[in-house]
Design a protein around this nucleic acid. Structure first.
Lengths: 335, 335
DNA sequence: GTGAAAGCGCTAACAA
DNA sequence: TTGTTAGCGCTTTCAC
């Protein structure tokens, strides 16, 4: 691989001059520029970015940690941050932890070692203590989907409890009272919060919480299938199922349909997240809007404000989920 | 941010020693190691990776370009490469071009500038000429989903034409002859190849190709909706629709269903790619398996073999799609 | 086992 | 406008 020296030699100029034409950081005669450019592509020269910033302080790269590249939920987040970063002339690196605490930590460590200017971390398995240390040292590190005591101004998250509450309340308002819940088997905060929202909605309506109506499964379509099967095997009565997320809802719907249980005629179902898929299920799935893109944008904006030393108060931190009515919930009161 | 110097000073040793304990590249007394480690986390020191490799030749990073982070199709690819890379102790950087030729080029350029050891490029808009130049200079650059003349040994791709042929042939074998096709509006090779497969299957069966039965749309659910609407408005007769991909099929199914057209009773439908979503549509979608993961693994393996100077002949390059029968195609001959 | 010092490829200050 | 040179933070010889 050719270096700046090679280019300089071939063009008959100094490395400084080459550097100048590359970054056009100062005036250069058309002839020298020409000579340099020519040498440059004759040698197929590509400046090594890592060196570019080694002499200076900064790096112009934003780092991000997510759980899983193949999960469209994160895909959406990454896309938004990527495009925002590009707009600011920064590049993006994203590391995935795949639901493993050790890897999650390594992801963050790697971003620090790569000297990212901004770090947006979706980390769910790291202990508060460790995370606190990272946050304290990385001034432009933002947490997404997590509320860390002492760093509220750098946390962006959804009101998960409120979202689930909204979902279940919607079912109740439609006359449902025997409401099953498929929760996420992952030991993470939002799983717990959503579950609490379910319980609160029930309590508020004076409906007895029945533990037998709650099953735990992976937050995936497969999980939804298993959850629905478990629910059917219980032979408990229920007229509706609330799910941890749309993926589970998709799986559950498939199983119900396989068993000739019609949605929403026989059983109503409600999801969470408003994943792209939810609009294309049959029937189109009623769900809770999770403004992932807006949250990701906000996280990036906060990070940017920090490194630009601008006011950071403008950005939203906690996001409110909203109900998206489609066709998977039946109004029992009408009959 | 603390540097290796700071650590050395605090630990009362030389930078060389610090470097040694960090990489444990040579024996060090337990006491010095202890002192260094202590200084290290007292200062919250994280070695700057970019510098680590600046003195040497290599970088231990693999780069990848894709079209869109939010597309699960690419998410799957990225995940596989990520995990393979991690297994080899390498890290991954991925850049997305978002269906823009300029950005696509920039993505590759960036990976080169970051000195990736292996580059896996999914690039569809770059001209052969330009790509040839990159391939010639980057010996461990692999193309995915593209066949570039002269570099066949570094191209991994699917037989798209064969896949679409398979899909349409399946419809024909089930007694269909009025078969509509929703093609991708993107000007890319695989869109063209899949379309050709459709035409060839028709021709081979002696069915007249009817241009009026072909509509063009985005390779997304929205595109599928538009495509299906267009098809319905044409008021042409058809008993089946073959789609460019599963996303389009999902959108098309929703529209048909909205119009009380039953699948597969009234209209059969077949997708392409076997995206996760396809199993959860109603009815479960018959589609063509696109072994993205296997292809991505193979691409990485080829890259790895190249930098390891190992035999590269072992890996598969062209992948064969297979039919996945589910419930969206009706057998007309049975009636 | 450890340190001094050269070198990696680049930028930026300072001279010319 | 251009060249010289110090320096960025790290690794790696080569002595000791």
């Amino acid at each position: 691989m050719a270096t700046i020296k090679d280019v300089a030699k071939l063009a008959g100029v100094s490395v400084a001059t080459v550097s100048r034409v590359i970054n056009n950081t100062s005036r250069v005669t058309p002839e020298t520029r020409e000579a340099v450019t020519k040498a440059q592509d004759e040698l197929n020269y590509h400046p090594a970015v890592s060196q570019k910033f080694s002499s200076r302080q900064d790096s112009e790269i934003v780092g991000m940690t997510i759980a899983d590249h193949s999960d469209p939920y994160f895909g959406q987040m990454v896309k938004v941050v990527d495009q925002s970063a590009t707009k600011e002339g920064m590049s993006l690196i994203v590391n995935a932890g795949y639901h493993d605490a050790g890897r999650e930590r390594q992801c963050i460590e790697e971003l620090i070692q790569k000297r990212c200017r901004i770090i947006i971390a979706h980390t769910v398995l790291l202990r508060d203590e460790l995370l606190t240390r990272y946050m304290a040292n990385q001034k432009s590190m933002i947490l997404i989907n997590r509320k860390l005591p002492g760093f509220e101004d750098r946390c962006v998250y959804l009101d998960d409890e409120g979202g689930a509450y909204l979902a279940v309340k919607h079912l109740i308002q439609n006359g449902h009272s025997k409401i099953a819940y498929i929760r996420s088997s992952h030991q993470i905060a939002d799983a717990e919060m959503r579950f609490r929202g379910y319980v609160r909605a029930l309590e508020e309506a004076g409906i007895m919480f029945n533990p037998a109506l709650v099953v735990s499964a992976d937050p995936t379509p497969q999980g939804g299938e298993q959850g629905a099967e478990a629910l059917l095997n219980l032979s408990q009565q229920f007229t509706a199922i609330a799910c941890y997320n749309d993926m589970q809802a998709a799986g559950a719907m498939a199983i119900l349909s396989d068993n000739d249980i019609r949605i929403p005629e026989h059983v109503s179902i409600i999801g969470f997240d408003n994943t792209a898929i939810s609009r294309y299920l049959h029937p189109r799935l009623t769900t809770i809007m999770n403004p992932v893109s807006a949250m990701a944008m906000s996280a990036f904006a906060i990070g940017l404000a920090i490194i630009r030393e601008q006011d950071t108060k403008v950005q939203s931190r906690v996001f409110t989920p909203t109900l998206i009515k489609r066709f998977s919930v039946r109004d029992l009161r009408a009959f």
